[in-house]
Nucleic acid binder design. Sequence first.
DNA 1: CGTCAAATTGCAAACGCTTACAACATTAAT
DNA 2: ATTAATGTTGTAAGCGTTTGCAATTTGACG
Lengths: 335, 335
Amino acid sequence: MQKKQTATIYDVASRVGVSLATVSRVVNGNSNVRESTKRKVLDAIEELGYHPNAVARGLASKKTTTIGVVMPDVTDMYYSELARGIDDVANMYHYDVLLTNTDEDPVRETMAINNLASKQVDGIIFMGNELDREVLKTIASVDAPVVLAGSIDAEKVLPSVNIDYVAAVKEAVEMVINNGHKRVALVTGPMEYAINKQHRLVGYQSGLEANGQDFDETLLFSSHQDYAAGYQLAEKIYATNATAAIVHDDEVALGIMNYMFDQGKSVPDDFEIITSNDTKFAIVTRPALTSIGQPKYDIGAVAMRMLTKLMNNEVVDNMQVTLPHTFEKRGTTIK
Amino acid sequence: MQKKQTATIYDVASRVGVSLATVSRVVNGNSNVRESTKRKVLDAIEELGYHPNAVARGLASKKTTTIGVVMPDVTDMYYSELARGIDDVANMYHYDVLLTNTDEDPVRETMAINNLASKQVDGIIFMGNELDREVLKTIASVDAPVVLAGSIDAEKVLPSVNIDYVAAVKEAVEMVINNGHKRVALVTGPMEYAINKQHRLVGYQSGLEANGQDFDETLLFSSHQDYAAGYQLAEKIYATNATAAIVHDDEVALGIMNYMFDQGKSVPDDFEIITSNDTKFAIVTRPALTSIGQPKYDIGAVAMRMLTKLMNNEVVDNMQVTLPHTFEKRGTTIK
DNA sequence: CGTCAAATTGCAAACGCTTACAACATTAAT
DNA sequence: ATTAATGTTGTAAGCGTTTGCAATTTGACG
């Protein structure tokens, strides 16, 4: 391994015959430098192939131009699309992204946040279905700003960007009810999670109520966010004589759909499905999945933009941003 | 924003009444410390809530325990599964991951690598379909070790981990030929890319040859790696009277399949498809996609493991690792 | 007790850069 | 020409660690 004798700021300073401070100034675009010396410094930098050492810079300036992203799993399309939005605007503002997968394990989430803090990140974006008490405490103990993307803290104390989950699932329920269904199932993650109990469930119930249907607890289902889980769950759902389902996750929805398919049932004729994440999965299957449309990329992008303001101590008027959602009618729903 | 008065190593040293060096030793698990003082230091660390500042540490030790990952797009299932393998073993060895999306743009790839270098990463994992000349030069100019994951440099000079692409597509072609097909299309990315010209195409031709079929250039197709591109391409493919296709990307394969479906053709009865990435996409559709099975997670994991050795100046016997691939027979293929 | 090697500790110099603050130079105004 | 402003540059003190080397302590042994 060839040891590149990387030039330091000292090298270019002595080469030009100016002080470190001057070189630092031109590197950082400080205007208080005479044009002619600026030019000379720039030339020297070019010749020496000087690249500022970001670590030293970080130590001296106490800014690392790096943010941390804590997420359940890069492999989950929903989150990876958020991550893409984050990354793009991060780059736009010249931040790098330190990525951590946690699989929604609060222990790992806590470790991740502490680790990011010790790496002196300038800010953190957190994603996950639930904010554990311990994690919340950790977030509070960190002095970098944290914003939630597509994630909810029950107390609404943290900056965040989301869609209106209760409105979205209410609409979904009503759509399906309008199609004539009397028994529509709701499948979400664990009911202890705020996003499920305080949002999806509430939307579901209010959709039922608005249409004079009674709430039946046996139509509530909880599953992991993966295809196999959905497939397994489908049997139980079908056993309740439900004829439609509102599903929190596209892979789960696909599992359900394929179970029906494999059982010789027709979707949407025998069973309607509305999913929630509108990832590529929803588009690529036949039938394609009708879905609540979430501006995933934008959720990430807006969260990151918000974080830049926070890191910069700018005022942000709205700390809990709600982005508009849409409704993507596709093939798992009659109309 | 509360300013956490974070304790420094100096604080704990003075609290215990030892020198910085001693604290540093216990923090770093250096054995030359008396058990009793070690205990006292540990206690003080606990009480003060001291967390080492990784930036300062990085500057002093010239190691950041951070690696860079350069990839086309987190949102691409193939790469995100590789990334997960990378991240898991990175964490295992206590490295953090700095992630950059490049969309395969050589300019951004170059910038990303240089940026990572200036952040003093200890190593880099690069993913992408092609290694641009300029990118190659940049890699050579960086003094951190770089390993390629699921990516090929034509000169085979860089450490890398892949599967045997020529064998894999050869097998796929032969399988389809055995099913009776006389005109099987090959769809890949740009033919200028080494992985296509020197691997996939070679495998394709050798599969043809082994079965006495002539090579017909009009059966070669090139597409972007997305669903829409596949759908569009499908019409042209069908127009050549091809009855089967070996496809480089699952989303593209899905596009082709759905085109056939929408045209009233049956897959696999009228048209067989074998895809190459075996991502979740391949499992989730009906019919599910027959695919070359790539150990994606392992490719990432092995690449990362290799990188740890390189960063540690350990010898690595095999610099160009080839992992075994499999063949996943599913529904887009007769048998 | 005295010796000497081994085990513990402390000292202080880096690491490469930012940034008050001070110093000097230049220009414009009087 | 003098003075005050303003513009440019240099000085040097950090930033929070690590680490080679020297100094000190400890313990075993004769």
